[in-house]
Each structure stands twice: as C-alpha cells, then as structure tokens.
Amino acid sequence: MTRTGRQICRLIFPLALLLIAGCATVQPWDRDLLAQKQMSFNPSPMLQAVDEHIYFSKEASMGGMDAGGGGCGCN
C-alpha cells in the first residue's frame, strides 16, 4: 500500500468506527428535526448538480456524493 493510501486508511478507520459505534440512540419520536427537508446532505440536488458541473470543468478533481460516470467533454 502506498504512503497516501495508508494515510487515508488511518483517517477513515476512526471515522468509520464513529459511524458504526456512534453515540446515544435516537428514538423514532425524537427525529422531528432530522425529518426536515433541510436536514439532508444534499437538500438541493439541482443546485448541487450545477455546482459539480462548474467545478468539474475548472478543476482536476471529481467524485464525492454520487456514482455517476463521465458525461461531459468540458474537462
């Protein structure tokens, strides 16, 4: 494994443990705030898509939220 790969693993494992272990249990009747539309990682998919298209055309990076393929000859 490369040095960068090892660094990423060191970063991911504690966070993955946090995701699985987590903190206190949140009961279904306590999820009123979580059920709101704005409590989403991507509350405005179209605006997000526009932003990703802009940055994909201007920068060398891509990836993050979705499992899309290519789709643009702009970069």
Binding site: L18, L19, I20, G22, A24, V26, R31, L34, M39, F41
Partner: peptide
C-alpha cells in the same frame, strides 16, 4: 449515521 437528534454525519 445519525449521531443525535440534531446531528448526522456521512462518509
């Protein structure tokens, strides 16, 4: 992952 009534995180 839902961490609390107010907090969600993801990887």
């Amino acid at each position: 992952r839902i961490l609390s009534r107010r907090w969600m995180v993801s990887i």
